[in-house]
Every structure is written in structure tokens, then in C-alpha cells.
């Protein structure tokens, strides 16, 4: 039977859920929220991430090409990054995947392959932007995103990072409102942001670029939120969380050193097909008896 077989395959990797959720959200955004997306943008993002991953796989002589990680990176870029220029779209997508292979520490990539090119582009390139207001604040949309996202992270066992980010971010927003004497409608409005939920559930919850231990991840979430709060309310710049994540990512190896934990494997998260690796490995063995989390996501 084809269907049960397909479902079994679908269940082998939590990223399949993630891809489905991201695609659904992207289509929803394009069809119902009027995203500023020309037809070529998803093609450029996804085509480039897949191609770049393939080229690095070949160049580094890795055992096999895994389409999932670059596809997720491409879809994440579709959800967040906007540009009118095809070369810029290609550059950003390639930069994200390249960073995954080239900026590493002890077999683990430092930067989230979606976050890195976005922050780089916002800082150094003209003609690229992120629309933090694109999801609006309609409660049901936020709810939908939360549900879909929760499904992904639960399967990927990283819901703790997402929830910690939302919790700390909410604490900062409400704390600020209380200090300023603002009505609670203001932090509530700020919290009802689809962009926040997309960030929490689809970006920072990436198990490959967050600390291995739970206390480490909670600490990491706190640091990201503090930096984000300073950027948003101290420097008055939008997209504080994106910058916060990029600024804190280099601290992950240090957090892992101080608060060590078991490395993450996507296939284990799905408790299926033991020993099967979907990652782009650059080193064949693990550290201290644990498999190393290689490659992206």
C-alpha cells in the first residue's frame, strides 16, 4: 500500500512536518495576507539552497545529499526575507548554506542558516528587507501558527527553546509596559505577532544551532531576548529578535561547554530508523561516544 508507506516515511523525520507547516504558512501568507512575493522568489531561495547544499556535499565528499535541511532553510527564507532582486535572493540563500559548512566549531555550525543571511543582508545590503508586520496580529492566525509550530518542535523535542523565547519576550514586553504605565493592550498587541511565533517555532528552535542541554537552551533564549529587547527598545530598530539570535549564536559553544548535554539527531527525534543520518556529515565519528550533530538543522 502506497499510503501507509508514505506515512511511514513521513514519520521518519520531524523535518517533514516542519516543511509541511512552513509550506502551508507560506501559501497562506501569499494567498490571504498579500505577501510581497514575486513568483521567482521561492524558486530562487529554494533552488539556491538545494544547489549550494549539493555542491558542498560533493566538494566535501560527504556520503549523501540530504534535501531536507536546505529545503527548510529555503522555506524559512521564503517566510521572512524579501527582495526585488534575483541576484540578492540567490546570494542570501547561498550565504546561509555556505555559513553552515564554513562557520563551524567542533563539528557544529554556529549560525542558523536562515538567520545568518537575513542579518547579514539587513546590515550590509540594500534592497533586502524583512517585513515584521506582514502577519498582522489577527489572533487566529497567531493561534494557527502556534499550533503548527508546536507540532514541529514537539516532534523535534525543542519546544523548550520556543516556549522560553516567547516567555522571556513576553516578560520583557509586559515589564516595559508596567514600567511605562502603558495599557496592557500594547504588550498584548506586540505579542500577537505572527513574526514572533515564526521566529520562536521555526528559527530559534532549530536543534542544530541551539545548546544541547535544556538549561543551556533556556539560558540561550534569555540572552537572545535581552539583546532583542535592547535592540528594539534601546536602539529603536526593528527585527530585534533576528539580530539577537545572530549576536548570541557564537555563545552556543561556550554554553555547551558550561552546560553540556547530549547531541541532537533528527532521526532520534522521530524515534525511527535507528542509525540513519540525514545530516551532512563532515566528521565520521562522535565525541565522547555521542554522535556529533553534523551539518544543518
Amino acid at each position: 500500500m502506497m499510503l501507509p508507506k508514505a506515512l511511514r516515511w513521513f514519520n521518519t523525520d520531524a523535518r517533514h512536518y516542519q516543511m509541511t507547516c512552513q509550506s502551508t504558512l507560506f501559501l497562506y501568507g501569499c494567498l490571504f495576507l498579500g505577501f510581497d512575493v514575486p513568483w521567482w522568489l521561492p524558486a530562487a531561495f529554494i533552488g539556491t539552497t538545494l544547489t549550494t547544499q549539493y555542491l558542498f556535499t560533493k566538494a566535501l565528499g560527504l556520503p549523501h545529499f540530504d534535501f531536507r535541511s536546505p529545503l527548510i532553510s529555503g522555506l524559512s527564507l521564503c517566510l521572512m526575507l524579501r527582495t526585488d532582486t534575483i541576484p540578492l535572493a540567490i546570494f542570501c540563500a547561498a550565504l546561509g548554506i555556505a555559513s553552515k559548512f564554513m562557520i563551524r566549531w567542533r563539528g557544529k555550525h554556529i549560525f542558523n542558516p536562515t538567520n545568518f543571511p537575513i542579518v547579514f543582508a539587513l546590515l550590509f545590503l540594500d534592497g533586502v528587507w524583512v517585513s515584521p508586520g506582514q502577519w498582522g496580529s489577527a489572533v487566529w492566525v497567531a493561534f494557527l501558527i502556534a499550533c503548527l509550530g508546536a507540532m514541529v518542535v514537539t516532534r523535534a523535542t525543542r519546544s523548550d527553546t520556543a516556549l522560553a523565547v516567547i516567555g522571556f519576550h513576553a516578560a520583557i514586553l509586559f515589564g516595559r509596559a508596567l514600567y511605562l504605565g502603558d495599557p496592557l493592550a500594547i504588550p498584548l498587541h506586540q505579542l500577537q505577532s505572527g513574526t514572533l511565533l515564526v521566529f520562536a517555532f521555526f528559527m530559534i528552535s532549530d536543534p542544530k544551532t541551539t545548546p544541547y542541554s535544556r538549561p543551556g537552551r533556556i539560558l540561550f533564549a534569555l540572552l537572545v531576548c535581552l539583546v532583542a529587547g535592547w535592540i528594539q527598545f534601546g536602539l529603536f530598530r526593528p527585527n530585534g529578535l533576528l539580530f539577537g539570535l545572530a549576536a548570541c549564536s557564537p555563545l552556543v559553544p561556550l554554553i555547551d561547554f558550561v552546560l553540556p548535554g547530549p547531541a541532537y539527531r533528527w532521526d532520534r527525534a522521530s524515534n525511527q530508523t535507528k542509525g540513519m543520518s540525514h545530516e551532512t556529515s563532515t566528521t565520521p565519528s562522535g565525541l565522547g561516544g555521542l554522535p556529533l550533530p553534523h551539518g544543518a538543522r
Binding site: L33, D126, S131, P132, G133, Q134, S137, Q190, P238
Partner: peptide, 13 residues
């Protein structure tokens, strides 16, 4: 450089 939009509310055409 380009058009402006609101960052804390949705900008709709």
C-alpha cells in the same frame, strides 16, 4: 531607496 511600511501593523495594498 524604496517604499516604507509599518513594522508593528500589517501594511496592505
Amino acid at each position: 531607496n524604496g517604499r516604507i511600511e509599518t513594522t508593528n501593523y500589517r501594511t496592505v495594498r
